[in-house]
Amino acid sequence: MASHTSKDFETELRTLRERLCAMGGRAEQQIELAMKSLVDSDAELARQVIENDKAVDRDENEIDELALQILATRQPVASDLRFIAMSLKLVTDLERIGDLASGIAKRALELAPLPHLTTRSSPAFLATLVLKNLRAAMDAFVAKDADSANAVIAADIEIDRVNATLFAELLGQLMSDAAAVQQVLPMTSVCRYLERIGDHVKNLAEGVVYMVHAQDIRHRPYVAPAN
């Protein structure tokens, strides 16, 4: 009987892990499609991304419920408890990432009917960096790998740097070509969204480190654990 119960518990934890991974995958896809709709001026795709955001919200509710139910019925301790606590946090970050992706799609929708801005400064590269970091954070979560998670945290500095350069370029364009304001302003929003997605990814990675090391590094400079 006892083994039966613990097997159920195992299954519940696995389901929680799998659902979180699927939600992470959905968030990745939302960013990818939102950026594609922006680059291709594809209004239909942008609308689809905005519609898909409902699925991300649904993910959040269902995973929250699952995590709380495990907490209530199993009263887990130690590493299981840390994992579940971390899930509750992870889910909110992923939901915010979903919101920001749908924000990008909304800007793409505004830009779609306007003529193409001929400029080299495109947020596409920034998006690639952010996506790569999100993937790495999810990989670190799956592998319970604190070192990779720390690499994700470190890479956020690069994202901020690229964003700052891009922002300056877009502003410069605004100065030289006032007529472009209609196209440039939404672009600056997209950059801001991407940067905020980057911040949430960093949060995810910090959660992974916490889960592995039981050490809350948020709001504190990171000190490598001695080993």
Binding site: R14, R17, E18, R19, C21, A22, M23, G24, G25, R26, E28, Q29, A55, D59, M138, V142
Partner: peptide, 27 residues
């Protein structure tokens, strides 16, 4: 390796979880 943690696609999870044999098109 755990498949669904490696291939993070919501539709794939639903497919593997479903109790009947089924088919879906997945990106």
């Amino acid at each position: 390796e755990p498949l669904l943690e490696f291939v993070r696609v919501p539709e794939l999870r639903e497919l593997v979880e479903s109790s009947v044999a089924s088919t879906a098109e997945i990106l």
